[in-house]
Nucleic acid binder design. Structure first.
Length: 304
DNA sequence: TAGCAGGAAAATC
DNA sequence: GATTTTCCTGCT
């Protein structure tokens, strides 16, 4: 099915898909191909128009609008964020970068795999898991695989997951998959919650045991921001910690700045993580997550 | 709370 | 080609 979406608000497909929030998009020639919601979607941007093709009827312009959050007033959001020269520069440089509304299960599972790995590696792991466990379908003569259901991964054997190159993450993915398929965590419960409450639920323990093994503060913030619609979440990875220490010494304070400035040797302790992310949320406000995404991409591209 | 293991591939030297 | 780093969490 082919359709177009007219853009009424700033959008950069390129920046959005290359910003590290997604792991199942790849550029082939002029088109971006993504596996989304069990189908392939093919997109290119022609100025103010998004040209789309999909292998399914259910991926229509309403879906695309929702997925890329084109219904959100990005200009307004960015206006609330540009409080200083650093973020202003990042926003100008990456104008049109948007957060995406990801599938919750896929986002959670993907970021459980993201610990101690870089983006190409994460994409590779996610792709291997999908190829092995996801439903297969064809598009333009190529084979694609949907993201597997939680139950499917919960019943996968550990050695098979290890064979996908997941290493020690295999155990985490299996446990998280089981927790989701057993209903120990219910995604719909998060809808009515604010950021802090939702975060607490993601990190909760039952009888002294983590429900979502492998989900710490950083992964929880990624999941909340990218798929649970909690825009004030401010995930701090090595890049964000680095850019904050370099360009926001006042926000961090002397001690934290000193600790994380020097080539990021120090690893972010959980108490420092809480302190820094709280200050960032207070400073940037209800759309702090957008600020994080601009700073992250700018830092990686050495733009700030 | 601090320190360490974990595990493979990318990035860097 | 070896070393360091990598969108970190769990355990002790």
């Amino acid at each position: 099915m082919e359709f177009t979406v007219a853009l009424t608000s700033p959008f950069s497909l390129e920046y959005t898909l290359a910003s590290g929030q997604l792991f199942r998009w790849a550029k082939k020639g002029e088109w971006w191909y993504g596996v989304v919601s069990g189908t392939v979607i093919k997109v290119r941007q022609e100025g103010e128009v998004l040209r789309c093709e999909s292998s399914s009827e259910k991926l229509d312009s309403a879906f695309v609008t929702r997925y890329f959050r084109l219904d959100e007033d990005l200009e307004h959001i960015l206006a609330t964020l540009t409080k200083d020269e650093v973020i202003t520069k990042a926003v100008e440089r990456l104008y049109g970068l948007r957060l995406v509304r990801q599938d919750r299960w896929e986002c959670l599972a993907s970021f459980v795999l993201a610990t101690n790995a870089n983006i190409p590696r994460i994409s590779k792991m996610v792709s291997a898991v999908c190829t092995k466990y996801g439903d297969e379908f064809g598009f333009e003569g190529e084979l694609y695989h949907a993201f597997p259901q939680p139950g499917k991964l919960a019943s996968a054997s550990l050695p098979d997951l290890v064979a996908c190159g997941l290493g020690y993450r295999s155990h985490f993915l299996k446990r998280v998959s089981a927790a989701v398929s057993d209903g120990k965590i219910e995604f719909s419960e998060f809808d009515s919650m604010g950021y802090l409450e939702a975060r607490k639920l993601l990190l909760k323990e039952l009888l002294g045991e983590k429900v979502l093994l492998g989900v710490g503060p950083k992964v929880a913030d990624c999941v909340l921001l990218y798929s649970f619609g909690k825009e004030e979440a401010f995930p701090i990875d090595v890049w964000v910690a680095r850019v904050l220490a370099k360009s926001y010494p006042k926000l961090l304070g002397a001690e934290l700045t000193r600790r994380y400035a020097r080539d990021g040797k120090a690893k972010l302790s959980s108490s420092d993580y809480s302190r820094i992310s709280e200050r960032a949320r207070t400073y940037f406000g209800p759309y702090a997550g957008y600020a994080q995404q601009y700073l992250f991409m700018a830092a990686r591209g050495e733009l700030v």
